[in-house]
Design a protein around this nucleic acid. Sequence first.
DNA 1: CGGCATCCCGAGGGATACTG
DNA 2: CAGTATCCCTCGGGATGCCG
Lengths: 144, 144
Amino acid sequence: MTAPLTNPGGADARDADDQLVADVFARGCGSRRTLENIAGKWGILALSALHEGAYRFNALRRRVDGVSEKMLSQTLQALERDGLVRRDVQTTIPPHVEYSLTPLGARVAERLIGLIELVESELGTVLAAQAEYDREAADRNRRK
Amino acid sequence: MTAPLTNPGGADARDADDQLVADVFARGCGSRRTLENIAGKWGILALSALHEGAYRFNALRRRVDGVSEKMLSQTLQALERDGLVRRDVQTTIPPHVEYSLTPLGARVAERLIGLIELVESELGTVLAAQAEYDREAADRNRRK
DNA sequence: CGGCATCCCGAGGGATACTG
DNA sequence: CAGTATCCCTCGGGATGCCG
């Protein structure tokens, strides 16, 4: 065989013209890993918050309620590595580190904010669906 | 005090007119939990796949490369409970279960697909940023 | 075929303490 | 202030086996 159809190892596929073929549905594709960094529990919130403007570390930590220092640090590092977040350091005392979005990060954040606004505005619908689901589940339990 | 500013317990906040106030940045808000179901590792992929059309369980499992039976089952249950996915059962032998999006699920999926397309199309940019980041990190290590 | 129950391992992630 | 480092433990999630 000349080329595998899937790439279990993790390298990204390329077509006959050596163009990068990104497919999140393929396990091991770089785009899936990047998507997970973005859409992970804290990635969404960090990127959305930074779309409001630059934040210093502890300010961002306060904005994203419930995130631990460790996880925020890890999240920001991953996003910086992916070229979505920029980290500017002032070597003063006390130190001053500011996080902001890169142009690509801003484009990603816009999508995320659209999603968040939809979810927030439809929360009532979701809560109603949950209540209905739970009620039916309880019914089924009572029967047997 | 008349009303708490945050709601650590998990109930969703309401304003003076008893309108639901959804804020994903607040720990414990229902909208954050819903967002995590949607944007979690498998939620994004399941919803996006279902936007292509209805799927049976094992077909969906094949489409979402790498997902285990257990996780796909859990993911679909959560999304069904949130009113984003519909589950239609034919009690034949063998059983026939079809998953599809609700109208709200379709609206969510559209947002997710926009995000995925952006990430896939910019994968080259991301990979370049990663290489640059890793190169600089290696440099810093060599110095000390 | 669809999918719950059980077992089990390793990564995820919190709390705390220390450094520049 | 902005992190790293360490400890420790929960639980995410894979594998397997069994039912409708």
